[in-house]
Design a protein around this nucleic acid. Structure first.
Lengths: 222, 222, 222, 222
DNA sequence: TATGAATGAGTCTTCATTCAT
DNA sequence: CATGAATGAAGACTCATTCAT
């Protein structure tokens, strides 16, 4: 496989992108790669380790991915199929349908918990893409071109709608989007770096506090 | 040099830890390493690249660092000398001296701008330590043991003082510390990932907005 | 392979230790190593030379021997299989069966010729083990522990039997064993160092003279 | 220094070849080299180790010996000055003067003890020359050309004289010389390899036994 | 199609040798 | 003359990739 073979458009919005469409072997290899890459980094990983993790012969990897680099690009496939696509499709719409019936803090908590779950479930994959994209800009290219704009658009829609509804202050929507993202990212990263210091309770309790601060700030209301 | 030779205690609080104490050659190599590591990652970097960057012979590296791994550990020295030490010593005290005379938003803006400057000036070094510590836990060991606790303590002191002063809400101090950190980290990371989307103005203007949201939240005050 | 994998016990006394038990490639490499080590010494040999001698790629060596040092230890395998084992099993018994029917000088000549043939056929291997064991004591460890005692025991049995039979003088058996060994070693070494001076005839003629002197001395019988 | 600078002729027979003639530094280096070479072999030795052993700077070695190889050739100087020259000059003549007054066994014991002492006192040097000459034939060239013939000649004279005197059997003198050499070499080597097995008493007692066997053989006199 | 032995370019690292001080 | 920092060629060893089976 080769990243050129990935039709991101179809992948994001196509009807039935299931694992069946990708050869079982390919998934097997990609999943092993995600695990090993997360543990040792792309350059620090050995194709022999990946083969062992996938319980196949080393040579078999190269029947499905021409080079090790293609294997790195290959993990974009599950990134989109398992993370970005669900992020766009599933939750936001579902949550927003009920938006009027719920207060904004409940909505934010639901959305953030949903994202948090998705991130935690796929933390190895996200870790690898996040880090390796810093060294391999071509990893980001398909994301930047096709996917990031839609994610940003979706978030912006959500923010603008809530500004209009009087749930958010009338700030630059990007500022608010960034705050939403920062709050969640900060929680995840700091919990990862120093769990002893920064882990205060269950994810649900934590998210409630985060949303409280996000909405109301840390300052005294004067 | 060897990381065991670094006296982190002295480094953090000692009187005069200047570059003079470390052989010029060693600094030259470390600085080249920081640059190359930031560009290609530790595993993706070649000692020959580092030598070229430092404009010395490859063999010379190994007169100062027994192994490539020691070179990675060697960048902890400038991390502490150039970033963590200044973070602890310089700004907080200076800012806090004037704290009573300034409103909290001004103080936060000054602190955050100060940190932001420090981070931007050393972004290569920070990037490398942040990433490689995920793959080489021994990189974090000295930080975790000696330095992280002091940083957290300093931040907590600041937060608790401001809670007492009525500048911050009476929340769990860790929650507030985390919000402070998240806001800044989020700004830096998102600006790095998608400058087109997330860069809205000068750093100073951005920080003002961030502090506004941090203090007052994104929600409508009811 | 690794020297720990060698079961010296089985190697010495096991039924069928043939080259088939060791991968062909391994033998190919070991034989090349013996040749190159004998020519340039262990430290003076390059793994690239050994690969060229074996007509394989350099990397292939390391599929079979983790390090160059393991390759040195690997030559113990043929040392035992091709030299020490035959020395213990074949000749002595065969010769001793006929001992009573032959005079002692004939027996000694047969034994010494047999050993000489074995040594000459394997002189590269013996040279390398003899020399390198002076610098790598771990090379001797397995020999000293398992094998040397048996060889000495076999020789002592032979000597003591012949003392009892009235063929040898009633001296300390070790003295006699040492004389036997010295005579043969001296011949081989001096012939190697200065063939022009010390090579007087065919090996068979030489051995006859050596055994004559060994039995009767160089002095005049008074 | 360079081996071409050594005047072996003068060295062997010259009146006053003392250490004073060679720069003290040179001796210091050579002696360190002998020690380190004996321990690790020529190829296994580092010039830095030799410098440390000699308690000088590494660069200083190269003021006296253009290359490491020249340093190896340099140890021929003390080989000749301290071993071969004394072997030729001192003992044989002294012993032979008294030859008529002593029985041949006493003479042999004295000669062998004398040689043995010389060898033991210089075993590091001899070990290195013996081994390295197998890998660097040029080490032997000066010895073969100038020195070995004289040694052989001296021994042969001794042997032939004793044949004439009726002390030795009328065998090929080379056979007898070889037996003399083998007996001593065998004793030294076997004692070195397996002291537990082959060391039976004081050197003097051992030599007496060796000379007994050498003169009278191990067989029963019929 | 799957395998894994073989490959050899590319790495880190060593160390004899040079030379400015 | 002595030093030892710097050099870079050369070595052991790794590992992505190929290919015969």
């Amino acid at each position: 496989m080769n990243n050129k073979d990935i039709d991101f458009e179809k992948l994001l919005y196509g009807g039935n992108v299931t694992e069946e469409e990708m050869a079982t072997r390919q998934w097997q290899i990609i999943e092993a790669a995600i695990k090993v890459f997360a543990e040792k980094g792309y350059e620090g990983s050995r194709t022999s380790d990946i083969a062992k993790e996938a319980e196949i012969a080393e040579g078999t990897i190269f029947r499905y991915f021409k080079t090790k680099k293609d294997l790195l690009l290959g993990i974009l496939f599950p990134l989109i199929a398992k993370i970005l696509r669900p992020m766009l499709l599933s939750s936001v719409e579902n949550v927003m349908k009920n938006e009027n019936k719920r207060s904004i803090d409940k909505v934010l908590i639901l959305i953030m918990l949903d994202r948090l779950t998705l991130v935690i479930k796929n933390k190895e994959l996200i870790k690898t893409v996040a880090i390796e994209s810093l060294y391999h800009p071509d990893l980001l290219k398909p994301l930047r071109a096709d996917i990031a704009p839609r994610i940003i658009e979706t978030i912006n829609d959500f923010v603008e709608k809530n500004i209009a509804l009087g749930n958010f202050r009338d700030l630059n929507p990007t500022l608010i989007s960034r705050s939403l993202a920062s709050s969640l990212m900060g929680y995840i990263i700091l919990k990862g770096l120093a769990p002893d210091t920064f882990s205060l309770g269950s994810d649900e309790d934590e998210i409630k506090n985060i949303v409280d601060i996000l909405l109301n700030g840390i300052g005294i209301i004067k």
